[in-house]
Amino acid sequence: MEIIGNAPNGKEMLEMLKFVKPQVVLTDINMPVMNGVELCKTIKSTFDNIKVIALSMYDNPGAIKEMIDAGADGYVLKISPLTELKKAIETVAAGNSYFDTAIDLTEVHKKENVDDKQSLSRSETEILKLIAIGKTSAEIAEERQTAVSTVGNTEKYDS
């Protein structure tokens, strides 16, 4: 496996794809300028052979369903071990789809007929519990081994 590029937002990723042709693109859902859902839709409609995996903190069925509907070939949670991500990349590069073992696809597909109200994801619930007991964002980030910006992100993904 080789990393051949990195972009801070979806728009810059699309520009980069004019020059490099990876087998697999990893994208977050929540990014500035162009979110991961729009990036995935654009990649799938523009590039025939590029596979897309969402790598996100959002484990709620609505977020996952939105990426599936955009054409994502896989979805891995940021809280999963790197071995899960490696397996996802290898599986998707081989032409198959891959969804994190922590994702209940039955719940994702039930989301089709449910209204827009979204319950909190497991990650969001854990973070809120830690906030409720008085922990700071930095303490929560250290405890969860994640970036402070991930903890501080209280907005739902852009859709």
Results as ranks from 00 to 15, higher is better:
residue 123 S to E: 05
residue 2 E to G: 05
residue 65 K to C: 12
residue 75 Y to G: 06
residue 96 N to P: 05
residue 122 R to N: 08
residue 18 K to E: 13
residue 126 E to Q: 12
residue 35 N to Q: 07
residue 98 Y to F: 10
residue 98 Y to R: 13
residue 69 D to G: 05
residue 27 T to S: 06
residue 54 A to R: 06
residue 141 A to G: 00
residue 140 I to P: 00
residue 16 M to I: 09
residue 112 E to N: 13
residue 92 V to I: 10
residue 86 K to L: 10
residue 152 G to A: 01
residue 38 E to T: 02
residue 5 G to Q: 08
residue 112 E to A: 13
residue 3 I to E: 00
residue 133 I to S: 11
residue 64 I to G: 00
residue 56 S to L: 02
residue 152 G to S: 01
residue 2 E to Q: 09
residue 34 M to G: 00
residue 50 I to M: 02
residue 119 S to H: 09
residue 44 K to C: 12
residue 83 T to F: 15
residue 54 A to G: 00
residue 114 V to E: 13
residue 85 L to T: 07
residue 90 E to H: 11
residue 82 L to E: 12
residue 80 S to D: 03
residue 131 I to V: 11
residue 11 K to E: 15
residue 75 Y to I: 05
residue 157 Y to W: 12
residue 56 S to G: 05
residue 71 G to Q: 11
residue 34 M to A: 12
residue 142 E to W: 05
residue 94 A to L: 06
residue 9 N to C: 11
residue 36 G to Q: 04
residue 25 V to R: 05
residue 146 T to I: 05
residue 141 A to S: 00
residue 127 I to P: 01
residue 89 I to C: 10
residue 156 K to Q: 04
residue 32 P to I: 02
residue 111 K to V: 09
residue 98 Y to I: 11
residue 137 S to M: 06
residue 150 T to R: 08
residue 112 E to M: 14
residue 13 M to V: 06
residue 32 P to F: 08
residue 144 R to G: 10
residue 36 G to F: 03
residue 141 A to E: 10
residue 104 D to S: 09
residue 96 N to T: 01
residue 33 V to E: 01
residue 114 V to Y: 14
residue 123 S to F: 14
residue 86 K to N: 02
residue 16 M to N: 07
residue 21 K to Y: 09
residue 150 T to H: 00
residue 20 V to G: 03
residue 22 P to R: 11
residue 114 V to K: 15
residue 63 A to N: 04
residue 18 K to S: 08
residue 153 N to K: 08
residue 131 I to D: 10
residue 67 M to N: 03
residue 97 S to G: 07
residue 29 I to P: 05
residue 83 T to N: 07
residue 55 L to P: 01
residue 96 N to M: 10
residue 53 I to C: 03
residue 129 K to W: 14
residue 123 S to Q: 11
residue 8 P to A: 06
residue 145 Q to N: 11
residue 151 V to L: 02
residue 50 I to D: 03
residue 131 I to A: 14
residue 158 D to M: 10
residue 58 Y to D: 12
residue 12 E to T: 03
residue 47 F to N: 14
residue 62 G to Q: 13
residue 38 E to Y: 06
residue 119 S to A: 12
residue 84 E to L: 03
residue 82 L to P: 04
residue 10 G to A: 01
residue 36 G to I: 00
residue 36 G to K: 09
residue 58 Y to V: 09
residue 71 G to S: 06
residue 115 D to F: 07
residue 74 G to Q: 12
residue 58 Y to E: 06
residue 138 A to W: 01
residue 60 N to M: 11
residue 33 V to M: 03
residue 143 E to L: 05
residue 126 E to A: 14
residue 13 M to I: 02
residue 119 S to D: 15
residue 143 E to S: 01
residue 91 T to C: 07
